[in-house]
Design a protein around this nucleic acid. Structure first.
Lengths: 223, 223
DNA sequence: TTGATTCATTGATAAAAATCAATATATTTG
DNA sequence: CAAATATATTGATTTTTATCAATGAATCAA
């Protein structure tokens, strides 16, 4: 039941019981194993995913088999995408990084609720625009920073947002790190090593630790 | 009067006469000379601009005095930005490229209309998401293409969208072209010269002409 | 467990792009 | 009009980043 869900979107509190029940009637739960694809870029957007367990990477499949990871999602987050309300296609691929459980809510039903509840619609718009602001920041990060700045950004993203700690075991591969920062895997590894040699971080396999947050933050800012 | 405006947003046709009149009561027209700033990044988002004459560049002010032009707007277009419904700040700067006339609609009034008219809200959401899809494409263009691919993109953007002809006089400077493609002015100029020498385009000062659309398109695609 | 496959790391080299510097060409302003 | 200012262009050089190649480590399936 959506209404009792521990990982319910705060957004859904805006809905009245009827509306929430409508969503509840038009959803189903799915479990994915690590590495499976939930949404595939180019395919029809028929559902919206709400994560109740696990993590996934959202990435754009670009040119020459290169990907750009735009976000890592985890429990409690909702994934629709810009295909919602427009062409109803997925404009990114979502692949799990761990075993994952999601609720898939029917997109049409979801849109009906948006249509019927102005407050909800406004909250959705706010959510979309907040993502838009983040995308602007990402544009600057990716186009105006050199590799060390971009890797530093990614480390803080993992630390602040994904793992919420300054020491953590990453769920992403080195290739993923490269796909987050728009560089090659080799370059990403080299920068990690530079940071390690400079005593800014400690890296042991998948275990990361931020040692000198100040300097790392400075690298972020100056690019 | 908004209702008789030649450059009325198609979006505004969704509004009923009362709602449109409300907007009409809360707008005013402003003329800008070339090079003036309509919205400044970081300042309060108090109005939405509807262009009735002229052109402007929308750019993010990034690091080390570098800008990233994300869009060129012209007559008939509306500019709000992701600050709408969120923090009500501007997240980009809008500067005119020619003498320009805009209608500035009060943002609060605009939001009230969004709140009161679900169809309008949904249409706005569609518009925002359409922009989101374009931003995804821009991410790939800027991060996965080399300079020739990015310049080719920009030329098609100017040709297809801004000037709607394959020979045109650009309203942007070489620096602006560089700011659209995330490279230095010198690099942008060099690529233009390469294209010229290869017979793909003709450039004479500000007059551009696409000569070999096929090859140019190929450069776009392969990056 | 072991071969196979994927993932991670390192070094050498090449390619791409920025920087610096100089000059040319417009454009504006007193 | 002419000096001053901004914009555009070109070449030489350096920096940044990707590519290529080889090897090591980890993970997986039979």
């Amino acid at each position: 039941m959506c209404k009792d869900c521990l990982f319910k979107q705060p957004l859904f509190n805006i809905l009245n019981p009827n509306e929430l029940e409508t969503l509840n009637q038009n959803r189903y739960e799915v479990r994915y194993k690590k590495g499976e694809t939930i949404f595939k870029q180019g395919s029809a957007l028929t559902h919206i995913a709400c994560f109740t367990h696990g993590m996934a990477k959202i990435y754009i499949e670009g040119l020459n088999n290169r990907n750009l990871i735009i976000k890592i999602v985890k429990r409690g987050e909702m994934v629709g995408g810009p295909g919602m309300h427009t062409d109803f296609k997925h404009h990114f691929t979502v692949t799990t990084l761990t075993d994952t459980q999601v609720c898939l809510i029917d997109a049409e039903t979801f849109q009906d609720v948006v249509k019927s509840n102005n407050k909800f619609a406004l909250a959705m718009m706010k959510k979309i625009n907040t993502q838009g602001i983040k995308n602007f920041e990402k544009f600057i990060n990716l186009t105006q920073k050199q590799m060390p700045g971009r890797i530093a950004d990614a480390i803080f993203y993992l630390s602040d947002f994904v793992h919420e700690s300054d020491h953590f075991d990453v769920v992403i591969s080195r290739q993923d790190l490269a796909d987050m920062t728009a560089m090659t895997k080799e370059s990403a590894i080299r920068i990690l090593k530079e940071f390690k040699d400079a005593g800014l971080i400690s890296v042991e396999g998948n275990h990361f630790e931020i040692l000198d947050k100040e300097t790392l933050r400075k690298i972020c800012r100056t690019g």
